[in-house]
């Protein structure tokens, strides 16, 4: 599953310090949330777990997460001042720390965000070297890295839906790299997380979205 490293993994990434896992990775997780939400949240409840719980201030993870929620990239120097910027822009936030969530990855962060009437919850893991994994989205097990174009499709749990979606993507010349589907219950809502090797045409997304059994689609471009 791991790709071979390239020279810009060795001479890079260019990032705001001090730590690729505690700073850059945290910015990226928050960037995913920013994209899913379609902008910065009005209100954010941020929970740092396990190894993150004690060191999130010292490593600047608190500033990193706000920077990411404001849409700043990992090398944006404004991250250092993100608490002031968040305040100026009226973004409310609170931090929590939980020390012993043994079922979660050592470097885990939970984001509970609201924007207008939209509410989302994301659990992300910072896996070292700035790599991340989005472990869950709104309670659905997700497992995607945000390194590839990614589709999040909320749809009814009906027969043949997975094959149908895969077929539509194939018609758009799109190879699926990874795909995870989890559901609330039988015949309830299922959530598809699809990582693809290439970008998707907007018309393909529009086509899928007009189908009655598909409720919502979020298309994420890779996060650098």
């Amino acid at each position: 599953m791991n790709q071979k490293s390239g020279i810009f993994d060795m001479i890079g990434p260019i990032m705001i310090g001090p730590s690729s896992s505690h700073t850059a990775g945290v910015v990226k997780i928050a960037n995913v949330a920013y994209k899913i939400l379609g902008g910065q949240p009005d209100e954010a409840v941020i929970t740092f777990y396990n190894s993150f719980a004690r060191t999130y201030e010292g490593h600047g993870s608190d500033k990193a997460v706000l920077g990411g929620l404001l849409g700043f990239a990992t090398d944006d120097e404004r991250i250092r001042n993100s608490p002031q910027i968040a305040q100026e822009q009226g973004m409310k936030y609170t931090y929590k720390a939980v020390g012993n969530a043994s079922t979660l990855h050592p470097n885990t962060i939970k984001l509970e965000l609201t924007k207008n009437n939209k509410r989302i919850e994301i659990i992300g893991e910072s896996r070292g070297g700035g790599l991340i994994n989005i472990a869950s989205y709104n309670g659905f097990r997700a497992d995607f890295t945000a390194q590839l174009p990614t589709l999040i499709i909320e749809a009814l749990d009906i027969k043949g839906s997975i094959a149908f979606i895969a077929q539509v993507l194939a018609q758009d010349d799109c190879n699926i790299a990874t795909m995870n589907v989890s559901r609330k219950a039988k015949h309830d809502i299922a959530c598809h997380f699809i990582e693809m090797d290439t970008a998707l045409e907007n018309i393909t997304i529009q086509y899928l979205l007009h189908l009655k059994w598909i409720h919502n689609i979020i298309y994420l471009t890779p996060i650098t």
Binding site: I11, I14, M15, I16, G17, S19
Partner: peptide, 21 residues
């Protein structure tokens, strides 16, 4: 020190070693 103080650096190969090169 720039790395420790949340400035912009090149992780080469890591952020912890970003002053050496």
């Amino acid at each position: 020190e720039v790395n420790s103080c949340m400035g912009r650096i090149v992780a080469a190969p890591t952020a912890g070693a970003s002053g050496i090169l």
